[in-house]
């Protein structure tokens, strides 16, 4: 037993790579601008990470089970659009009240559930490649939100926004709600991945679907569950997103899917499935947000090169954790 414990906790580069990268970024940020570690900036970065972060936690399960979901960005825009339309439509009958906001939140969760379920069924039951299915739904959700908004922007009723606004901007003991929700999702996700049969089953399916099937795991149902979970987390992220700007348009959530996938991979989850860790994903999300933040705070390089710097850091973070993998 003691031997087991010692082995698991031996600090290895492979495990700590993303964490080291995060620490390096924090040190870099602090040395470039004294406001970097200020309460305001830290809160800003964490809160803005929350949308991608909540989605990326769900994405970790999908990728661990050997899947992929390219539709999450469009899905978020679509869910936000539906949510705004429903809430605006409810105002004449219910008025600007808390129940309208609650019904809007419920709408987001239900819409996310349905969208994820559709993806899951097409992939697991109809057995179409996940890449193709979600590429298709990505286009569908994006065009649906454009259509709902008539090519423009869907805006939440001004008075209702005032009521809903605190969900993004207020918080508990100085910690804003999106950060609290993100932290809860991350902790629950980590527990589910490590200590629930669901997480174990995801890893088994991603590692070898045949073995999973022969081990009495309901592969189809588990796979659908990963997409439904992701869909609902997209709904949850949207609930946090809408009060921020109170609007949704065709440009909402563009490329979120790639950021979420990148965060998952930077965090050490295997892109081909079979192994995933949620805490790594959280680190990955923070790395991505910090890069943007530091580039904005520093203004030492041409903003045209921001993409280059992001790309280099993402690749470096992954190279770092591969460094010693050949030993395993």
């Amino acid at each position: 037993m003691s031997e087991t414990t010692a082995k698991t906790w031996m600090p290895s580069f492979h495990v700590l790579g993303p964490l080291l990268a995060l620490i390096v970024l924090i040190i870099l940020g602090a040395s470039i601008n004294s406001n970097f570690l200020s309460y305001g900036n830290v809160t800003n970065v964490l809160a803005r990470s929350a949308f991608i972060g909540i989605i990326a936690v769900g994405m970790t399960f999908v990728i661990t089970a050997g899947g992929i979901d390219l539709s999450v960005g469009s899905m978020a825009a679509f869910v936000a659009g539906v949510m705004i339309l429903v809430m605006n439509a409810l105002i004449p009958s219910i008025g600007v009240t808390v129940p309208v906001v609650l019904l809007g939140m419920l709408t987001a969760l239900v819409a996310g559930f349905i969208a994820g379920w559709v993806n899951g069924v097409l992939i697991a039951t109809v057995k179409i490649e996940a890449f193709i299915v979600t590429l298709g739904t990505m286009g569908i959700y994006r065009s649906l939100v454009t259509w709902l908004a008539d090519g423009g922007t869907l805006s939440l009723d001004f008075d209702l926004r005032g009521l809903y606004r605190p969900v993004y901007y207020d918080g508990l003991l100085g910690v804003s709600w999106p950060i609290i929700v993100f932290a809860l999702v991350a902790i629950l996700g980590e527990l589910a991945m490590r200590h629930l049969p669901f997480g174990r089953h995801c890893g088994a399916i991603g590692a070898n679907e045949q073995v999973a099937k022969y081990s009495a795991i309901n592969v189809q149902r588990t796979r659908i569950a990963t997409y439904v979970l992701l869909g609902m987390l997209v709904g949850l992220a949207t609930i946090m997103y809408v009060p921020r700007l109170g609007s949704a348009s065709a440009s909402t959530g563009v490329l979120w899917e790639l950021e979420a996938i990148a965060a998952v991979i930077i965090g050490g989850t295997a892109l081909k499935g079979g192994y995933g860790r949620v805490w790594g994903t959280v680190v990955g999300v923070l790395i991505l947000s910090l890069i943007d933040n530091i580039l904005n705070l520093a203004s030492i390089v041409s903003p045209y090169l921001n993409g280059t710097i992001q790309g280099v850091i993402v690749i470096l973070a992954v190279v770092l954790q591969r460094g010693k993998k050949t030993d395993g």
Binding site: H195, R200, A207, V211, K213, S215, G274
Partner: peptide, 28 residues
Amino acid sequence: KEKGLLLNKGLTENLTLLALHKFTHPWI
């Protein structure tokens, strides 16, 4: 190799995969 064991996973994870429900209440 193809249907029985997850070759890239540890012994414990393989051993309990079929009977995981016996180790779950509610956490593994």
